[in-house]
């Protein structure tokens, strides 16, 4: 059987007044893809990912970005693409700051990366332009006062099968790619 993929591209303005239109449009697009639309819990995670990518666009991009959805044979890919600021993080061990393209690593390298106050996540540096966000280890908040107040990347990773950030050097384009795999 030859499978023909389908694609949806939405422009995300710098300011969104209502997320609902985006969520409904994305849900309608995947409406015939039974592995997702027929599973209430998976669909809830799909909606959360859409929301988090929209929030990420408004909070960090400060420019027009695009949401690209693609239905494959056994998976759904969601990409948030923009030409805004490059993604950056700190190494939790050294406190050193990194920005893309990354240099001075052996590939692959795993690291606990810090993104904000009390907010960290394991990443796998695959090459100088590509990192994968990894499943958090046991999440255990020792004290309420140490609770982070940012959760976006962690939520996306928790919802999806895989979650990558890619920086395209030639055109300065940032891509967050989220994949839901149903094999």
């Amino acid at each position: 059987m030859v499978f023909k993929s389908q694609k949806l591209i939405l422009e995300i303005p710098a300011q969104i007044s209502s997320y609902r239109t985006f969520i409904d449009t994305c849900c309608n697009f995947v409406g015939d893809f039974e592995p997702l639309s027929g599973d209430f819990k998976r669909l809830a995670k799909f909606k959360l990912v859409i929301m988090e990518l929209l929030t990420n666009a408004m909070k960090h991009t400060k420019a027009i970005s695009f949401l690209e959805l693609e239905i494959g044979a056994d998976e759904i890919s969601i990409r948030k693409i923009d030409a805004g600021s490059r993604f950056s993080f700190l190494d939790s061990k050294t406190g050193k700051s990194y920005c893309f393209p990354l240099t001075g690593f052996r590939y692959p390298t795993q690291m606990l990366a810090v993104f904000g106050d009390n907010y960290s996540l394991d990443i796998l540096i695959k090459n100088e332009d590509l990192i994968e966000f990894l499943e958090p280890k046991e999440i255990d908040y020792l004290s309420a006062h140490e609770l982070p107040e940012n959760f976006g990347l962690m939520v996306i990773k928790q919802c999806a099968s895989s979650f990558h950030y890619h920086y395209n050097v030639p055109d300065g384009r940032n891509t967050f790619e989220v994949v839901f795999n149903f094999k």
Binding site: R20, K47, M51, K59, H145, L147, E149, N150, G152, V155
Partner: peptide, 21 residues
């Protein structure tokens, strides 16, 4: 509330920390 994102949950956490303090 039908939809909530991580920014709003962050505000709830900030409020909780303030109340507990």
């Amino acid at each position: 509330i039908q939809y909530m994102d991580s920014s709003f949950i962050g505000a709830l956490v900030a409020g909780l920390k303030n109340v507990l303090s």
